[in-house]
Design a protein around this nucleic acid. Structure first.
Length: 850
RNA sequence: GCGGACGUGGCGGAACGGUAGACGCUGGGGACUUAAAAUCCUCUUCCCGUGAGGGAGUGCGGGUUCAAAUCCCGCCGUCCGCACCA
């Protein structure tokens, strides 16, 4: 009896060997074709979790597979090391964010190494390295000089207790996620990157990304939210008797014209009112003179920003006493309202309402008894068909619309836009949902924004030779707010322009800036500049990028933007950073709850008499299978699992069963099964009795497996690759000794190498093969050996399967038909009737239609 | 509300329009063992039948086709993204 494969010994042995031989160091100068495989780098939270293991295992299989195929592979790893958890740890435990982060990186690096990933650690970067963020500051200044950066006042979520800006995701039900304080809307001066300049490019670029999931492309498309329409002006006037009201005067002075944006210029004769956003200048002017208006606006702002709050909120408005003059009819006047459903950030912050064909306008008009005028009619309607309880946003033919009558919606849109442009009161415009990217964060643990504020010169860029602007170490976290604000020694600087006393910018970058170019730095890392153009272009774009779908919009959009911005300024000639994208599913686990509703971790639950009970004997209810999370207490720490079963079993399980894009449920039984497979392969390799002669059936199986595994890995269908290897393993186990069998075992080891590399190396050595299996060639297959000489013909009568027959391959139609008709079962079904028609699919099926 | 994905045994899932359920897990039976673990063999969609065999079956209802899990139409359900975007 051969011994068992002992991962505790083997894993370390081969990891050391790969390291010693620098197996995974990528050579940019190599003449081989290049392949860049990348997984989204982790935030160093302290320990890796199963999601990381799954993500990195997939990338690793691909990287190792490509290497065996003869590619020079770049497969790097680093750390998205800035961010709030480090500061929270500093506040809660009094540790410095840097020390905390560095410690976490060291621990997680060890954990990753223990899993035997084929990573080029020589290129490791952490975004908190001054070298890394210094180059990032330089890139930012490049963009600044190119006019792609600007400073603007903008509204932010302000936590008054923690005295910091919160991201939208950190505002829960209107309260700060840490402090629980009610979040205020506050205006702050922030740095913005002009991502909207690239809106069209980013949208059009999606088309070429044929190796991206449609879902992600669609999400980005919606996020960018392009809509074509017309921007035009209404002249304003006072409504008859109200000319002398002070707020009307103020409003007319502030807004002699109101600009609106519409995607439905065709409905211009259906207009029944004009509405502006509460923070529109006109609304503000009215409010300055009219306390009721001011109250109304304050009410609008008081409503939470949560989705539910917005959804349940009733449409409401405030009549300003102004009127807007219809651009196509000077005698036609529309009431001007301030309305709570108009957004200042979109379009021009003002709309004209068409209640007949827009649901929001319909609700508003109904409430305030404004006219509802049909201007589009479907084929079953005419110009007098009344509008019902809801608006009719659909297609049709224009009615009640003067010169537009009879035109289709599309034709009418065009006609109105042309007329507006001719007459000079409006022009065609494209509006985007996408906003410019605000990158300022009032946080310590991030990349300092390389700017200096001078009272005389305004904001001035830090001179290049002074980069990097390094974070000061000596800061305190005992008081809420940004510690950089209090680091007076660090803040003081002389103005690069006038030489006078000035203060540094104390905001740091959104961490998404850090992750917007790390894949470029991986490809090329000179010390004197962010990257070398030629070296970076040798690797980029990333051939396969793998990560969670939660980054479908922000990170992936920012990285695409950054890459295009670098192209525009001539730094890198790459359009799209990620040629192939794959978003893997989550790792889930069942959940358990105590009678009082508390979540219980799996090790607090045991089985007793077929029932689940807690440690104290209380009955436990089984919850849903959910994503592993601390709050649900259903996490499984990979480290003890790896220690118990070995890296390969864990890797194998991560690839088994579930298709990679779907969720994978962690289970004890599953990992046991994976560990069993590892031993089966080891047993084959370690007990192989050499045999003589060929085994044709096994040989065909072998070639089909080579083809199948290759195709599955190429398509990132790892679960199928796994299934193929199970089949081959069973076939070899059952086969009698032969030369073919011996060869099949060697091939099996190569096929399994990307997934279970330690096992493969151990087997490879045991089988007396030369070198390391990581450097071995991927097996090739002979297409001629993929087919069987004998096929199984399915025989159907009227489309129902009645028999299966063994037949030699390549029967012609007549032969196949004759064979099928000779079947007893077929004859019984036919019961003497003669077939009306016979369909033959060669070597597969005969269908007899009676 | 808008957009999208998905729905197959006890479970995860396979299946160029052509033998539904590969492979794995679980469970049943058996072998080996003093015993257990490990390992191996074997069965495992459902219904009728001792059996040979027959019938049903891929969320539901229609349709196209010699043939539909797969294509088309209409429902139902689950999940995800966006959300007062003019």
């Amino acid at each position: 009896m051969a011994g068992r494969f002992d991962p505790a010994v083997a894993d370390v042995r081969w990891q050391r060997r790969w390291d010693d031989e620098r197996c995974f160091v990528a050579d940019t100068a190599s003449a081989k074709p290049k392949s860049y495989v990348l997984e989204m780098f982790p935030y160093p939270s302290g320990r890796i979790h199963m999601g990381h293991v799954r993500n990195y295992t997939m990338g690793d299989v691909l990287a190792r597979y490509r290497r065996m195929q003869g590619f020079e592979v770049l497969h790097p790893m680093g750390w998205d090391a800035f961010g709030m958890p480090a500061e929270n740890a500093a506040m809660e435990r009094g540790v410095h964010p840097e020390g905390w982060t560095r410690g976490n990186i060291a621990a997680m690096r060890d954990q990753l190494k223990r899993l035997g990933f084929a990573l080029d650690w020589s290129r490791e970067v952490a975004t908190c390295d001054p070298e890394y963020y210094g180059h990032e500051q330089a890139l930012f200044l490049d963009l600044y000089e190119a006019g792609l950066v600007y400073r603007k006042e903008s509204e932010v979520n302000w936590d008054p207790v923690d005295r910091t800006v919160l991201a939208n995701e950190q505002v829960i039900d209107g309260k700060g996620w840490r402090s629980g304080a009610t979040v205020e809307r506050r205006k702050l001066s922030q740095w913005f990157l002009k991502i909207t300049d690239f809106a069209d490019e980013l949208l059009d670029g999606l088309e070429a990304l044929d190796q991206w999931p449609e879902k992600v492309k669609l999400m980005q498309e919606n996020w960018i939210g392009r809509s074509d329409g017309l921007r035009f002006r209404f002249r304003t006037d006072a409504a008859g008797a109200q000319r002398d009201y002070p707020w009307v005067e103020a409003a007319l002075a502030a807004a002699p014209e109101i600009e609106v944006f519409t995607t439905r210029p065709d409905t211009i004769f259906g207009a029944s009112f004009v509405a502006v956003a509460p923070d529109h200048p006109l609304a503000q002017a009215v409010a300055s003179q009219n306390p009721d208006a001011a109250d109304f606006i304050a009410q609008c702002k008081a409503v939470g920003t949560s989705e539910e709050a917005i959804e349940s909120q009733e449409k409401s408005g405030f009549a300003t006493g102004l009127e807007a003059i219809h651009p196509l009819d000077p005698d036609w006047r529309l009431e001007v309202w301030i309305a709570n459903f108009v957004l200042m950030e979109y379009g021009s912050g003002a709309i004209f309402g068409v209640p007949a064909h827009d649901q929001r306008d319909h609700e508003f008009a109904t409430k305030y008894d404004l006219p509802i005028r049909r201007v589009v009619a479907s084929p079953t309607q005419d110009k007098d068909t009344p509008i019902g309880e809801t608006a009719e946003p659909g297609e049709g033919v224009l009615v009640n619309s003067r010169f537009l009558d009879g035109l289709s919606v599309e034709e009418a849109k065009d006609a109105v836009i042309r007329r507006a442009e001719q007459e000079g009161w409006g022009k065609r415009e494209i509006a985007y949902r996408l906003r410019d990217w605000g990158v300022s964060r009032q946080r310590y643990w991030g990349t300092p924004i390389p700017m200096i504020h001078c009272d005389r010169c305004g904001p001035v860029a830090v001179p290049r030779e002074q980069l990097p602007v390094v974070l000061p170490q000596d800061v305190t976290f005992d008081i809420p707010g940004n510690p950089l604000d209090r680091a007076m020694e660090w803040r003081q600087a002389s103005c690069p322009k006038c030489g006078g006393e000035a203060l540094r910018e104390t905001d740091t970058f959104d961490t998404f800036v850090d992750s917007s170019w790390y894949f470029i730095r991986f490809a090329s890392q000179p010390s004197d500049r962010p990257f070398d153009k030629a070296d970076a272009e040798a690797w980029l774009p990333v051939d396969q990028y793998i990560g969670g779908v939660e980054h479908a919009i922000l990170h992936l959009l920012y990285a695409r933007f950054w890459t295009r911005a670098l192209k525009r300024i001539g730094r890198l000639d790459i359009d799209e950073p990620f040629k192939g994208l794959f978003t893997q599913g989550m790792v889930t686990h069942e959940t358990f709850r105590a009678p009082d509703g508390r979540w219980l971790s799996p090790d607090e639950v045991r089985k007793e008499g077929g029932k689940l009970v807690a440690a104290d004997g209380a009955p436990v209810s089984r919850g849903r299978v959910e994503k592993m999370s601390k709050s649900r207490r259903n996490t499984v720490d990979p480290e003890p699992i790896v220690a118990k079963y070995g890296a390969d079993a864990v890797r194998w399980f991560m690839l088994s069963d579930s298709p990679p894009e779907r969720d994978l449920e962690w289970s004890e039984a599953g990992i046991e099964g994976a560990a069993r497979f590892v031993q089966r392969v080891w047993k084959l390799a370690s007990t192989e009795a050499s045999g003589e002669g060929a085994d044709e059936a096994l040989e065909r199986k072998l070639h089909r497996t080579i083809a199948g595994v290759g195709e599955a890995i190429e398509g990132l269908q790892f679960n199928k690759a796994v299934a193929f290897l199970y089949e081959l393993t069973s076939a070899i186990e059952k086969a009698p000794p032969s030369a073919t069998r011996a060869e099949a075992i060697v091939t099996l080891v190569r096929l399994a190498a990307p997934m279970a590399p330690h096992l493969a190396e151990e087997c490879w050595a045991k089988l007396g093969q030369q070198g390391l299996v990581v450097g071995a060639d991927w097996p090739s297959f002979d297409p001629a050996k993929l087919v069987e000489d004998e096929v199984t013909l399915a025989v159907q009568v009227n489309g129902k399967l009645r028999d299966t027959l063994k037949a030699p391959r390549g029967l012609d139609r007549a032969e196949a038909e004759a064979l099928a008709l000779a079947s007893d079962k077929v004859q019984r079904q036919l019961a003497g009737a003669s077939p009306r028609k016979v369909i033959v699919v060669p070597d597969r099926l005969v269908n007899i239609v009676a």
